[in-house]
């Protein structure tokens, strides 16, 4: 067993944006509680008016785990990922904020390694990377892998970001740092994740990486098309001239 986490003075706010994730949100909440025993944390679910009853499930979970541990901060309609984080951040009471996807592609079992790495290095941001030893991806076809590698080589060649996985969104931020960089990020989709980390890197924040594995959407469908690639290239050009 690894040494217990020494996090007595820290509180972690885990922001999980959801849209139609009624089963996944229940599973992820269970797994977070399972893997973060003895850590002071809260889960902030930002639900964008899911029609499938995600919010009802969250209310049931509140009864099991307590309303002070699971916060439901819903919004009336689908308003996008970036604003979901800002919305969640307003209600966060921790000094650290974790951002993760609700679709179980980000497994909560990696949270202790994020927390440990942060306390060891005193970093401002810990970002999960799929592209180092110990990390990995499951469920991607050749086309998906090719696009991902191509996108990564382009970004590494032109942006020199200093991190190996730019579009991953499983990250731990010091709250003040997240508040600082989120306000100047305007991109959408996963370009938004890239913009956050590039801006943080340019501002001189200390960024460290931990390996994570990524199991692509167990339930639900994956999406990547030509328009995503165009958006990505636009995002890259935008970051080249603005950062």
């Amino acid at each position: 067993m690894e040494a217990p986490l020494n996090t007595s003075k820290n509180k972690y706010s885990i922001i999980v944006p959801t849209y139609n994730e009624r089963l996944n949100i229940a599973l992820i909440v269970y797994l977070i509680f399972k893997h973060l025993r003895g850590v002071d944390f809260e889960i902030i679910v930002v639900d964008d008016g899911s029609p499938d009853g995600t919010q009802d499930i969250v209310k049931q979970l509140q009864k099991v785990y307590g309303e002070d541990r699971i916060l439901l901060r819903a919004r009336p309609s689908k308003l996008g990922l970036g604003t979901a984080y800002i919305h969640g951040l307003k209600h966060a009471s921790g000094n650290f904020v974790v951002i993760m996807d609700a679709d179980l592609s980000h497994h909560p079992k990696y949270l202790p390694s994020f927390i440990r790495k942060q306390s060891e290095t005193d970093a401002d941001i810990i970002t999960g990377t799929r592209y180092v030893t110990g990390g990995g991806v499951h469920g991607w076809n050749l086309m998906r892998k090719l696009t991902s590698r191509g996108a990564n080589v382009l970004a590494q060649t032109f942006l020199w970001p200093g991190v190996s996985d730019l579009t991953g969104s499983f990250r731990l931020y010091r709250k003040s740092v997240l508040e600082d960089i989120i306000s100047c990020c305007v991109s959408k989709g996963y370009v938004f994740q890239m913009e956050m980390i590039v801006r943080a890197s340019r501002k001189g924040y200390k960024i460290k990486e931990v390996p994570i594995t990524f199991v692509d959407r167990v339930y639900g469908s994956s999406k990547l098309g030509g328009s995503e690639i165009v958006e990505y290239l636009k995002g890259l050009a935008y970051l080249l001239v603005t950062t």
Binding site: L142, R149, V153
Partner: peptide, 14 residues
């Protein structure tokens, strides 16, 4: 891109 593709880390056990 080629090297990255060949060494693409996968995790079926996960």
């Amino acid at each position: 891109v080629g090297v990255g593709l060949m060494q693409f880390p996968t995790c079926p056990q996960e």
